[in-house]
Design a protein around this nucleic acid. Structure first.
Length: 255
DNA sequence: TGCTCGATTACCT
DNA sequence: GGTAATCGAGCAA
C-alpha cells in the first residue's frame, strides 16, 4: 500500500484536514488488517487554538503533537475511549488533525468483533469458524439492524479507534514509515478510485468542544452516512441555574 | 493531595 | 433528549 508522504502533513492542519478526506487509514495488527476510508476530520492548531491539547504547551501526554509531521497522536478520553490524530506542520508547532469517522473498507469482520464482540470472537478456534458468524445475530440488541451497525463501525473517533484496534501503544507511530503497522494511503489505494470532482466537502464547528467552538475546522464528506452526528459541547451546569437570559443555542446541525 | 471535567459512547425514558 | 460509565491530565490549594 502506498503511503501519503511526510510532506503531505508538513502544512497547517486546516489545509491537511480536508485533503485527508477519502484517504485510507489502516492498522495491520497481529489480529489482522482493518482499513477505513476517512469521511470526517477536525483540525487542531496548537498554540493559536484554545481547543487544542497543545494550546497550553508540551506535556508528557501531548509530546507527540510537538514532534515531526505524519506521526500518530493517540490519547485516552473519558476513561474509556481512544482518539487518534495525525501530526501536522514541522516539529514544535503542535498542530494535528483528529480522525473522527470513516467507512470500513477492509477487515470489516475483525472490526465487528472488536466493536461488538460477536460470538466468533470468543468461540474456540478449534470448532468450525464461520458458522458462528453466519448464524449469529449482529443486531440482536435492538432487533437486528445490521446495516446501521455497519455504518456505526467507525462513526465517531472512539468507535474508529476501537474498530481499528488503536490504543496508546500506537502513540507516536510514524504513519509515513514503511514498516509501521499504522499507515495512511491516498484515496483509491484500497477502495474504488475516488472521483475528486464527485465529492463535496462540508465544513462546520468542531464537535464537543467548549473553547473556540466558533472556528469551522471540522470537515466531512457531505451526505456520507458514516459521518458522526454533530453535538455541541455539554453546557456546564454549576449550582443555581441562570434565572434569565438563555444563551444562543444555535449550532444545531447534522452531518 | 484532591477535585473537576473532557476532542465519547451506549443505553434509558 | 438525558445521563451513567470511567480515568487521568491539569489545576487549585
Amino acid at each position: 500500500m502506498p503511503r501519503l508522504p511526510r510532506e503531505f502533513f508538513d502544512r497547517p492542519a486546516t489545509e491537511v484536514a480536508p485533503d485527508l478526506l477519502g484517504s485510507i487509514l489502516w492498522h495491520a495488527s497481529p489480529a489482522g488488517l482493518v482499513a477505513a476510508r476517512l469521511v470526517e476530520v477536525e483540525a487542531y492548531r496548537g498554540a493559536i487554538d484554545p481547543a487544542s491539547h497543545a494550546f497550553r504547551g508540551r506535556t508528557a501526554r501531548n509530546a507527540v503533537m510537538f514532534g515531526p509531521p505524519g506521526h500518530a497522536y493517540v490519547y485516552f478520553s473519558y476513561g474509556m475511549h481512544y482518539c487518534v490524530n495525525l501530526v501536522c506542520e514541522p516539529a514544535g508547532r503542535g498542530e494535528a488533525v483528529l480522525i473522527r469517522a470513516g467507512a470500513v473498507v477492509a477487515g470489516a469482520e475483525l472490526a465487528r468483533r472488536r466493536r461488538y464482540g460477536l460470538p466468533d470472537a470468543v468461540a474456540d478456534p478449534a470448532d468450525g469458524v464461520g458458522t458462528a458468524d453466519r448464524s449469529g445475530d449482529p443486531g440482536s440488541r435492538r432487533g437486528g439492524r445490521v446495516r446501521s451497525r455497519d455504518l456505526d463501525l467507525a462513526r465517531g473517533p472512539g468507535r474508529l479507534c476501537q474498530a481499528l484496534g488503536i490504543d496508546r501503544s500506537l502513540d507516536g507511530a510514524d504513519a509515513c514509515a514503511s514498516r509501521c503497522p499504522l499507515g495512511i494511503s491516498p484515496p483509491g489505494a484500497a477502495d474504488r478510485p475516488l472521483d475528486a470532482a464527485a465529492i463535496t466537502i462540508a465544513t462546520g464547528p468542531r464537535v464537543g468542544i467548549s473553547r473556540a467552538a466558533d472556528r469551522p475546522w471540522r470537515y466531512w464528506l457531505a451526505g456520507d452516512g458514516h459521518v458522526s452526528v454533530y453535538r455541541a459541547s455539554k453546557p456546564r451546569v454549576a449550582g443555581p441555574k441562570p434565572v434569565a437570559g438563555r444563551a444562543a443555542e444555535d449550532g444545531t446541525m447534522h452531518g
